[in-house]
Design a protein around this nucleic acid. Structure first.
Lengths: 146, 146
DNA sequence: ACAAATTCCGATGGGTTTAGTAGGATATAA
DNA sequence: TTATATCCTACTAAACCCATCGGAATTTGT
């Protein structure tokens, strides 16, 4: 039950952009260096993020990327779903919302998968890039861990 | 973000055993037929489930498997963690509970991964095999979907 | 004693996915 | 015109998933 590096790196990328807001377009090279990731691999991620309307790009020398919206308006869930696809803990996603197969054991278990899906979506949709930068919940988190 | 078929099939297997409780040991062959799964593949899953103490086996003719505990005492989370390993949405699990790397962007994002992990564990630990059989939450679920 | 059923266990293999790398086209600033 | 970047597609090595296979060990029934 893992996200791939697409989601992991993509969120790093977006947080980096959010932190460097207002400095003009940020070239991928500098992000790759700061985050110690492959620039070439990040290229593929930003491509999807831009197409999804989460980033804007400026081509050519002095070019780079900026967030297309403010950090408050971009949720972690937006980023992750673009890079990882829709969150669905088991296959049969298209039917996960339907009452399609109510007499099999799979659909007895469907309750489990639906609840997992919903809980993950709730978490990622409740955290914005701005939240991450401000560390809003970090203290709660530390209390919980200790 | 998917579980593998191990978790999916394993839960089917356990629900099947729970349903056929009190009928003596259930041979894998009959489970495989009912659930339309490969008996050979299920073999590998029950091996782990038995070693983890969730099932008991009886070898030889007329043998099979039974739940090692009552369906009320077995949570979905028990089953899934045995078959899929610990729930951890990104790598670095061993350190996910520690305050190990507080100055990197990864650990700014750690808040996200920790919350996802906890929310999944909360869901799967709150549902027992007995809950699934009784369909306790199914009505809530249908209301939510419609 | 023997045959059938069944679990136990390790090895192997084909297909898919992941995590990049590579090549080259296009656009822009200086 | 050169250097810097993004854009886009194709490729690849390694890992992982989903089984299948062969055969040993155990138990019941005849």
């Amino acid at each position: 039950m893992r996200f791939t590096t697409r989601g992991k790196y993509g969120l790093l990328l977006m947080v980096d952009l959010a932190r460097n807001l207002g400095q003009g377009p940020i070239p991928l090279k500098s992000i790759a260096e700061r985050q110690k990731l492959s620039e070439r691999y990040l290229e593929q991620l930003v491509l999807d993020l831009r197409k999804a309307g989460l980033e804007k790009s400026v081509r050519g020398s002095q070019g780079g990327y900026t967030l297309a919206k403010s950090p408050e308006e971009i949720n972690v869930g937006d980023v992750i779903r673009v890079l990882e696809g829709p969150i669905a803990p088991v296959e049969c996603e298209n039917q996960m919302d339907k009452d399609c197969c109510s007499n099999t054991d799979f659909c007895i278990n469907r309750e489990v998968w639906v609840k997992i899906r919903d809980s993950i979506n709730d978490v990622v949709d409740s955290i914005s890039l701005a939240d991450l930068l401000s560390g809003r919940d970090n203290e709660q988190e530390k209390i919980k861990i200790l």
